[in-house]
Computed example of a mutant assay.
Amino acid sequence: MFETILDEEERGQVGIGTLIVFIAMVLVAAIAAGVLINTAGFLQTQAEATGEESTSQVSERLQVVSQSGDIADNVANTSERGIGTLEFVVASAPGAGNIDLDEVTVELVGTSGQETFQLDESPPATNTIFTKTGDSNVLTDNSDRAEVIVDLEAADAFESDGGYALSEGDSLTVTFTTASGASTTTEIRVPTTLVGDDGDSVRL
């Protein structure tokens, strides 16, 4: 059944051939292992970067502590009563890192259309951290509080000449988006009848 090799020289050649095949198999296996290790390392690095980016987009956001507005008897030159100025108190969300308010984008969506601007654009917006001294507009701790004011009647800041009209009974969606891409949305609902005089503040 098996062929017996009696020639010593021929037997040696077969042994050398087998050794060469074995060495080649070891080299191929080593190269394949190296490729797998490099690929695994690349995938791990990519996964970590993606995870950090996803975490930032979830945690690096603002939270709205309170919101109010100032009554205007002739809001945005419409001869209607409404809200002329929005006032927000904001803080960084739990687990968030430093948030630069000057890099936060604000989007308004309501009956007067859509408007987008940054908090460092004055008009219509101003922001001030009132829980610590200094000129920095960066929230560094969850205990920091900042006042964000949006002047809806800033004529030069919006498409409408009179500003952004927010009249009695109107609703407005306000979205704050940080530099990392994390967003916080709050809803403003103006009462159908505002009780108070021009310039009075009301909670919204």
Rank of each mutant, 00 (worst) to 15 (best):
P124C: 02
T175K: 08
A165H: 00
I99E: 01
G51S: 12
G169V: 07
E159H: 08
I99K: 01
T128F: 13
Q67L: 07
A146V: 04
T177G: 13
I149T: 15
T116K: 15
F130N: 10
T50P: 02
N137L: 05
I71A: 01
E159F: 09
T175E: 07
V104C: 12
G97D: 08
D120M: 03
A179V: 14
V174Q: 09
V106D: 02
V138E: 10
G163N: 15
E187S: 15
A96C: 10
D170R: 12
A93N: 07
G95L: 09
E168Y: 02
E147S: 14
E121C: 03
L119F: 07
E121T: 13
A125R: 06
A93Q: 00
N137V: 06
S171P: 04
E153R: 13
L194Q: 02
D170Y: 11
E53R: 15
Q114L: 14
D156Q: 15
G163V: 11
T185W: 08
V90H: 03
V190W: 01
D161T: 10
T133V: 13
S79W: 02
G84S: 11
V104T: 13
T140F: 05
G82W: 00
T193I: 00
V109Y: 05
N77V: 05
D170G: 06
T173K: 07
S92Y: 00
N74Y: 05
N98G: 05
D102P: 01
V58H: 00
T175S: 13
A154N: 05
G51W: 11
R61T: 14
E187L: 12
E159W: 04
E147P: 01
G95P: 12
E115W: 07
G134Q: 07
E53W: 04
D102A: 09
N137G: 06
S66W: 09
D102G: 07
T140D: 09
A76W: 03
V150R: 03
G51T: 09
L166H: 02
F88T: 08
E53F: 05
L152I: 09
E87N: 11
F117M: 13
E159L: 09
V148T: 06
T78L: 14
T175Y: 07
A182Q: 05
E103D: 14
G84R: 10
E80K: 11
A182I: 08
A72G: 00
S54G: 06
S54I: 10
F117S: 08
S183E: 06
S143W: 08
E52F: 12
V75F: 10
